[in-house]
Design a protein around this nucleic acid. Structure first.
Lengths: 329, 329
DNA sequence: ACATTATATGTAATCGGTTACAAGTATAAT
DNA sequence: ATTATACTTGTAACCGATTACATATAATGT
């Protein structure tokens, strides 16, 4: 592979000048063009590793994400990767599904200098992991997950509002007994969605803890949780599932129990993954602005990297209800 | 950040010795332990960029993938990332959905030295892109996509066999008129799946070109294609969809046309994405061994990188039929 | 014409590691 | 005791860029 010295020799200038051409610094126009043509001719590509070493910047973002279990995450990852590429950054992936040890490994190596910053979302990240990240000294943005101690910038959505929207919608279309399939108890997003549901039902005098079952943010969990709700409340006629996968599980349960959707049971999910449109009937959902979230995360991170800005910002984006057939009465 | 010289000073040895400790070369046991403890104490982490520069190895794989449109790809990406991590490699993502220019950009920068090898699957990669890859001189493995000229190692599945299995299954359960929703005409996987279908139907005397419609590997395509088939053949009672998304689209069409699945219309998909289990009824599919494919791709690539082995291997894995409710007669 | 300033380029140190080679020390062999 | 051999360690060049500083040249002012 041809390097900067080869170019400098052939062009009859110093390596510094070649470097200046590469970085658009002050060089005489003729020199610039001459060096450029030599680079062209020799098919020279500056080595990005060497560049990173001297600049102490890799233009790389590490993305710590649960990637497969829920299609929401690949979509978010994709929007992050797109925006990063747009801004000249590469993205290194660490998908953490169910593998805390792998995650620990990755986190431990994060301040090797290979990444300029981190975007993370894994709920697998425990206190120790968070501390390692914090102490690494590299900029971090958390996404889809609040951080109580305000240690990182964060991008999240108004989960409580979403839970409220979903529940209000179910009330509006005439549901009398509305259940909730909540996400994991240790996830703040799940808790907020639950609080949105809860506060709306309280206002309307219909809150009852037995109307809430765990759906664990999974299809299987939603299926099991919905069956529990059917047993506890045979007359349940609406359910707010904490995410779309859970809603799909609830649909499967409803089908087994011979409840017609939306007439016997209306369902609202959360996230806005493609799948909700493919189900029959299609599922009403609370849509998260995935693209905006990804862009915001990347730009906030890059701001921190390039401006060496320690300021912590917490963005909370709004969600909106997408009505589909599962609540069409 | 503490570097190797800081450690060498504090430990009272040369940087070479510290480096030897890092690389498990010959050092006296006591020295080894002493240096190790100093590194521990100073919380020293070797800088991976510097390391990459001198070793001329980044331990990084570039992954060129369509990542979001079809859940099959995130899953495959995930299995690749897992195996790579297992082997001490990082994965840089380039998702190409509908963005040929981005892809070109990425390809052009691939021999900057930031990646040791490439795994790619995008059908967006045109002749020019393939050439750039080929000329880059870095090891490449193609996945889920044959390469006629045998320029890269490849991992694929026996698509023709899959198409055959699907079609035979439909015949076995008693379908009399079996259609096919094929993938894009320029994709070799789609063509092979079609040939599997075609050869089985020919053997059974039931092949008729009008039984084939384009499904484009998408939900919408499957939906439109299925409607075409209903119009052309009102008595169609079985369909092999070239992938699971297409099968889902076909299901939606069947629902609109009031055909009961599986009794009026039996459906078989291809890929084995989670979604097929969530649909009601669940969809019979030809499952690809995603994990094996990912592992194989990574290991083949690493072999090429580390052994500087130019040998080209083409692996073709078997698929298997997973029977679900959409063909349960 | 000469001093001053701006512009363009080169020299060499640097980023943080690895490693070929040299040199020193300990152990075995004669 | 002396030489050969194995084992450890250090010195310094190197990977391929960037950049502070020095220097040379051109442009401007008086």
């Amino acid at each position: 592979m041809v390097n900067i010295r080869d170019v400098s020799k052939k062009a009859g200038v110093s390596v510094a000048t070649v470097s200046r051409v590469l970085n658009n610094k002050d060089v005489k126009k003729e020199t610039f063009e001459h060096v450029m043509s030599v680079m062209e001719e020799m098919k020279y590509k500056p080595n990005s590793v060497a560049r990173s070493l001297s600049k102490k910047q890799t233009n790389t973002i590490a993305l710590i994400f649960p990637v497969v279990s829920n299609p929401f995450f690949p979509k978010l990852a994709s929007s992050i990767e797109n925006e990063a590429h747009e801004k000249g950054y590469k993205v290194i992936l660490c998908n953490t599904d169910d593998n805390p040890e792998k995650l620990r490994n990755f986190i431990d190596s994060i301040n090797d200098g290979f990444a300029d910053g981190v975007i993370f979302s894994s709920h697998l990240l425990d206190e120790a992991g968070l501390n390692t990240l914090k102490n690494s000294g590299i900029p971090v943005v958390s996404i889809d997950r609040n951080n109580f101690n305000n240690e990182f910038s964060s991008i999240s959505v108004n989960n409580k509002m979403g839970g409220g929207l979903a529940t209000e919608h179910l009330i509006e279309i005439g549901c009398k007994k509305i259940g909730h399939l909540r996400g994991p108890e240790d996830e703040i997003t799940a808790t907020n969605r639950y609080w949105g549901y809860r506060s709306v039902l309280k206002e309307n005098g219909g809150m009852d803890p037995s109307l809430v079952a765990l759906g664990y943010y999974t299809v299987e969990g939603g299926y099991q949780g919905m069956k529990e709700l059917f047993i506890r409340h045979p007359d349940i006629d609406g359910v707010f599932a904490a995410n779309d996968l859970t809603a799909i599980g609830a649909m499967k349960a409803a089908y087994e129990w011979n409840r017609k959707i939306p007439d016997d049971l209306s369902i609202v999910g959360f996230d806005g993954i493609d799948m909700v449109r493919y189900m029959i009937p299609s599922i009403t959902t609370i849509q998260q602005p995935i693209n905006e979230m990804g862009k915001l995360a990347v730009n906030e991170l890059i701001r921190k990297i390039e401006e060496e800005d320690e300021e912590i910002n917490n963005y909370e984006l709004d969600v909106r209800l997408i009505q589909n057939d599962s609540t069409l009465r």
